[in-house]
């Protein structure tokens, strides 16, 4: 059993960085914990749920996917290769790890996205069994669990009451990370701590069923009243994957960018002629819920929500997708009676 003392996690990060990995870990900076690239001296914090999700390192918020230059009168398109450094994401929450499976499916559903795939191939995910959760966590309602390992190449288990961690490789990539860690991991014995308990808030299958029949339900207007139209939820979400293509050109050079975009904003579906098929926030909030709990299930057989709760934690207007699903579940039960 590979064991590491809790206060030696930076040593593990250093060993992996030394072995050529870009190490991403939950780092505390001031009042908040974020998934960022580890650098010597950074404080790894496995207790708090990071503000951002691990998605950021596979599908960055802005990325160049094309480029062309103008030289004299010659217009020259240039081939842009993905930037995909060998990366290990340490202590990703299980909800972030399982989100990778959905992203894999989306980015390979029809068109094979070389940018995502190159980074995915170069990335090893070592998830962390959750021993802490908060009131916004609802992974158990969407088929996840605090100790789930879906999407992970290895798993860190907190042990001996938080004094140490057990690293358990699950795939070849995971084994390679364990090997690269070298002496940072010791052979030993430790007793894994029990994962935290996360209560089930709703029945996801029933929600999917209800959504199939209730596109026009008056409930949408009710549950979306507080929504103010921003992208806080989508950009914090480990599975949201919508983007906008923008060309930024100067005389000498122009780039084609892939920027995050979100169905929460009115401009997302605004047509050039002025018509907007999603005219109000009720339609946009419906889209968000439908996409995650109905369309993706129909197309890819997978929920678009892993229950991380970030959207609710960060929403400036107190919107919570878990709350909406619970209300849907209740509406369905009421209708059955």
């Amino acid at each position: 059993m590979k064991v590491i003392e809790a206060n030696k996690l930076p040593g593990l990060a250093a060993a992996l960085a030394g072995a050529g990995y870009r190490v991403v870990a939950p780092i505390r900076d001031g009042g908040e914990v974020r998934m960022v690239v580890w650098s010597p001296g950074a404080a790894i914090d496995t207790r708090a749920i990071p503000v951002n999700s691990a998605k950021d390192f596979l599908f960055p918020k802005a990325e160049i996917i094309g480029r062309c230059t103008l030289d004299g009168n010659d217009f020259r398109p240039e081939d842009v290769k993905p930037v995909a450094p060998k990366t290990v994401i340490l202590a990703a929450r299980p909800c972030d790890a399982s989100a990778m499976l959905l992203l894999d499916a989306v980015f390979n559903w029809d068109y094979k996205d070389e940018f995502f795939n190159a980074r995915r191939a170069a990335t090893t995910i070592v998830s962390l069994v959750c021993t802490t959760a908060d009131e916004q966590c609802f992974c158990t309602s969407v088929g996840g669990a605090p100790d789930a390992t879906a999407g992970a190449d290895g798993v860190l288990r907190q042990a001996d009451g938080g004094r140490s961690f057990i690293l358990e490789p699950l795939t070849e990539k995971g084994k390679a990370v364990a090997a690269a860690a070298g002496a940072a991991l010791a052979e030993g014995q430790a007793k894994a701590d029990a994962p935290v308990e996360v209560p089930v808030h709703f029945d996801a299958k029933a929600v999917t069923e209800w959504l199939g029949e209730n596109f026009e339900s008056p409930l949408w207007r009710e549950v979306s009243l507080a929504c103010l139209s921003c992208g806080a939820c989508a950009y914090a979400c480990p599975t949201c994957h919508c983007f906008d293509l923008q060309d930024e050109a100067t005389r000498a050079e122009s780039v084609r960018l892939r920027n995050w975009d979100t169905c929460g904003l009115a401009l997302f579906t605004a047509h050039a002629g002025g018509h907007n098929p999603r005219p109000d926030q009720a339609a946009r909030w419906r889209q968000r819920v439908m996409h995650k709990f109905s369309y993706l299930v129909e197309r890819l057989g997978r929920l678009g929500c892993t229950g991380c709760g970030r959207c609710a934690r960060l929403c400036p207007a107190g919107m919570a997708i878990c709350e909406t699903c619970r209300e849907i579940d209740e509406a369905r039960k009421a209708a059955v009676k």
Binding site: L228, C230, G231, Y235, N259, P316, A317
Partner: peptide, 10 residues
């Protein structure tokens, strides 16, 4: 900044 425009919305 992720350009979510929550500042604007709020």
């Amino acid at each position: 900044c992720t350009r979510c425009y929550a500042c604007r919305a709020a």
